[in-house]
Amino acid sequence: MSAQIAGPETVGHLTDQAPPPDPSSTKAKEIAGKSPMQIAFGRLVRDKIALFCAFVILVFVLVAVFAGVICSIFGVTTDTVFASEYVDGLTGMPLTGPPLHGFDPNHPFGLAPQTGEDNLAYWVYGCRTSLSIAFMATVFASSVGIVLGLLAGFLGGTTDRIISFFTDLFLTIPFLLAALVIAPIISERFAASDHYKQIQFWNLVAVLSIFTWMGTARLIRGEVLSLREREFIMAARVIGMPTRRILVKELLPNLAAPIVISISLMLPLFVAAEAGLAFLGIGVTSGISWGQTINKAVTFFDTYPLYLWEPTLGIVALCLALNLLGDAIRDALDPKTRR
């Protein structure tokens, strides 16, 4: 009887271990390594509050971008109207719509007392003004803070001392006091200009940016101080990599988390600040703004509360959504969180 020849034994037979999964299988993809940003995005997608806030912010952005289209759809406009055709000459209240009449489909948000202006048109364009100023101020303030924070943290020495001195100096200046002093002076200087609205817009952006970059600069400086001693930065210095390349290619990508958090928390601050300055009469006074509408509506709160609540609720909803989304982004980017 011939002996049976056994086949060669494999490592799997000797160790009783299952063979490695196919790299293209679902199991292999699940255990594949992910970058920190991919992990943070996955956490953010699973956060229902963050998704809802992102949707609310997207709605406000679409309203601001397509303000003219929305006004055309509802048949409303911001053009000056004859007040006598829309309001009572004695009481100043609208002849149609709230507070004395029912819902008017031609003016869904009602009409402004005394002037007869359409509230929906002013609300939509007020949203555009607030988001435009907040976005531009955030871009400038974040850019200045990131650049100065990178230079102060990486170069150190005299550069760090000079930048830190100016950072502390600007932190000692009260923002509201500076805005009350600077904004009216610049606005009065160019009051006779044909481009007064644009000048007032950029004046407010400049005031918001100049006095709010310090927090970002300090945050970035602290992160760079810890990163510049890491092995990959030491290796980049040893091989003679230029400073600009180290800052842009090595340090900046590792600062994505604090930068995103700083921007997400800076936007609602500027939205509220723009409305507050406009309410005080030193913001956007020649254009359309939620703050200007609130300033006009305060005197009618007892008789026409809806006129005040419309812009106020817009500011509250936008700022709340931005703040909650900023908190969710911070939690998602934090490696220690278990949410």
Rank of each mutant, 00 (worst) to 15 (best):
P98Q: 04
M37A: 15
F41E: 11
F66Y: 13
F66M: 08
K34L: 14
A67I: 00
P108K: 03
H101Q: 13
P36E: 13
Q38P: 00
L44H: 12
G89Y: 00
D47Y: 07
A50F: 09
G42N: 14
R43D: 13
T77A: 08
I70G: 01
A67R: 02
C71S: 05
A83P: 08
P105A: 04
P108G: 02
V87T: 10
P98W: 01
C53H: 02
A67V: 06
Y86Q: 03
P94C: 07
L44I: 13
I70M: 04
F66N: 10
D88Q: 02
G97H: 09
P98I: 03
K48L: 13
I73F: 14
K34F: 10
D104I: 05
T96A: 07
T77D: 13
L95W: 01
L90R: 06
N106F: 12
V87E: 04
Q38H: 08
F82E: 10
P98F: 00
S72P: 03
H107C: 05
D79K: 02
R46T: 14
V45R: 15
P99G: 03
V61P: 06
V56N: 06
G68I: 01
F60E: 04
N106L: 15
G75T: 07
H107N: 14
D47I: 12
F66P: 07
L90S: 05
S84C: 00
D88R: 03
K48W: 15
